[in-house]
Design a binder for these strands. Structure first.
Lengths: 191, 191
DNA sequence: GTCTATAATACGATAGAC
DNA sequence: GTCTATCGTATTATAGAC
């Protein structure tokens, strides 16, 4: 059974998650989180006594979502190549949001990297999860060193595409780069 | 002859430029710009009556710097391939700053893309300049459509490398990706 | 052109009633 | 667990003295 307090907490975390993504962390205030979650500002502050607390909770929530997603992918995809393709599909499917708000992991980590290095270290775990998962898939095909490099390359392509499509507010940029990522995957995986 | 007011203006713009880069635009206050430029806060506000005004001035200043840099490169480099290599060298030479603060163009445009779309359009011009310049160099070797794609690809690689190196605060990531960019340039330019 | 003083508002945070 | 009231401090911005 989930308590009322836990439910409220989750409501707040979801609202903050969206706002941190769509507006940015620094610019988002308790006031706005309160409006978005239909709660009183003081109530938010009761559950998260500092803004950093709220940020930490949002990051942990994202990490859990990523963990669940990667487990699902690991379960669903039969071959390493299909797994890697799944990563590209995710980017493709989120083209509209990526063009409008940028990458949720990249933009948050970039922002925190300038003014909140401690929190950035927490946000970095989102990348760690993806990179380790990608690396494991590449390892099924390539030697360790190469697998690590390829994982980083694929993530860099995704981030580069996200930044450009966000700057030009153009989902097509994501789709073009997704095609190139698929082509690149085919080439190196010799399929 | 440059007036005292113009000199003060330039001092402020330089201070704001650095702070917007190192801390981010939203988080930087008049107070901090005042401290960094050894001026009074009200004096800053006299020259730039709104924060958006100051941002616009900083962006225009950056655009002028980029314009000058690209002209210099166009003048110095003998072949299109050397020009393109110069772009990679810039990234390599700025590895430390890129790892510490991210890409000045990318992080600012990302930030503005979430909460200040009008200013983002101004910031986008920085990318326009680079992309058009790169495209022109590729056009000396490839057909127009291909040249445009390659320019966007090279910029995406640079942005992807910047994001990753910023997230891990690791200049080596920039250097590794710079090597890959050079390799890629050599391959497609058949050198 | 420069700066002081101050307005008006928003912020994060706290103490305490219910 | 919820919410009110409020504190102290930031913020941007203005009006006006020099």
């Amino acid at each position: 059974m989930i308590s009322k307090g836990q439910k409220t907490r989750n409501t707040i975390i979801n609202a903050a998650d969206n706002l941190f993504y769509q507006l940015g962390y620094d610019i988002t205030s308790y006031q706005e989180v309160a409006q978005a979650s239909h709660l009183k500002k003081a109530n938010i502050q009761y559950h998260f006594s500092s803004k950093t607390d709220l940020l930490t909770a949002v990051i942990e929530h994202r990490i859990e979502q990523i963990r669940a997603l990667l487990e699902k992918w690991s379960f669903e995809c039969d071959t390493p190549y299909n797994c890697l393709n799944q990563f590209v599909s995710m980017i493709e499917n989120n083209a509209d949001d990526l063009a409008r708000y940028g990458c949720p992991m990249g933009t948050l980590s970039d922002e925190l990297g300038k003014s909140a290095l401690e929190s950035q270290a927490e946000a970095r775990q989102m990348f760690d999860l993806f990179l380790r998962w990608l690396e494991a898939r590449f390892r099924a095909i390539f030697p360790p060193k190469q697998a690590k490099d390829y994982a980083q390359q694929l993530m860099a392509m995704a981030q580069g595409a996200s930044v450009l499509s966000h700057i030009y507010n153009d989902p097509e940029i994501i789709k073009n780069h997704a095609k190139m990522m698929r082509k690149w995957l085919k080439t190196i995986c010799k399929i």
